[in-house]
């Protein structure tokens, strides 16, 4: 474990917590893409499938973190699609998730480290995570604005994988550890946030709200 990965995981936890708080406190999921949250839940379940297969002795933090990610993302989907369904902006959350899931699944079968079920699920989860934020970014471009709290969520969510890139550089340099698939997907994932990062740093940090040119 290194500082980059630690702060990456903390940033990821913060993102999940910010979104949960936003929905719970405002009792509304306006401006939140339910599809992105569904895709994240699928990512966690397919990536941490080992929790369900092998007996999970909850002694180490990694297992606990995996369970937190899965339960928090499923609970977020429950809030969006059930509890606060009336506030879900389905009209603007209109990016076709199939266009992300099918290519990720196909690519996972073609490019993977080992052609076996668990490994393909893991690879699928990595590829899907890289593009899972697209429905959320698409929704913001359609509505033309993002609530400040939602911007903080996106900043934390984007920072997590950006910090993981620093972690991979660190591990390559000091442990000569390389996980090419995760690195390539992580770079793509972070690049997708660049536009948002620019808006966040030039606007939200100064207390302005993100309003895209309509």
């Amino acid at each position: 474990m290194n500082i980059f990965r630690l702060f990456g995981d903390l940033s990821h936890l913060a993102a999940i917590a910010i979104l949960l708080l936003k929905i719970w406190k405002t009792r509304s999921c306006a401006g939140v893409s339910g599809k992105t949250q569904l895709l994240f839940a699928v990512c966690f379940i397919t990536r941490y499938i080992d929790l369900f297969l092998h007996f999970v002795s909850l002694y180490n933090t990694e297992k606990v973190m995996k369970l937190i990610y899965i339960s928090a993302s499923v609970f977020t989907c429950y809030l969006i699609f059930f509890k606060f369904k009336a506030t879900y902006d389905g009209n603007h959350d209109s990016m076709r998730a199939e266009f992300l899931i099918v290519p990720a699944a196909g690519l996972a079968c073609l490019i993977n480290t080992k052609f076996d079920a668990i490994e393909i699920l893991w690879t699928f989860s990595i590829y899907l995570e890289a593009v899972a934020i697209l429905p959320q970014l698409f929704l913001i471009s359609k509505t033309g604005e993002a609530e400040t709290i939602t911007s903080h969520y996106l900043f934390a969510q984007g920072s997590y994988r950006a910090l993981y890139i620093l972690n991979w550089i660190y591990r390559y340099h000091y442990e000569s550890h390389v996980d090419t698939i995760a690195i390539v997907a992580g770079v793509v994932q972070t690049i997708l946030y660049c536009d948002f990062f620019y808006l966040y740093i030039t606007k939200v940090v100064k207390g302005q709200k993100i309003v895209l040119p309509a």
């Binding site: 995981d9 973190m65 995996k66 990610y69 893991w122 972690n167 996980d179």
Partner: peptide
């Protein structure tokens, strides 16, 4: 199982 690829990150 030993033959599984070890992904030690979340």
């Amino acid at each position: 199982p030993a033959d599984e690829v070890d992904h030690d990150e979340l």
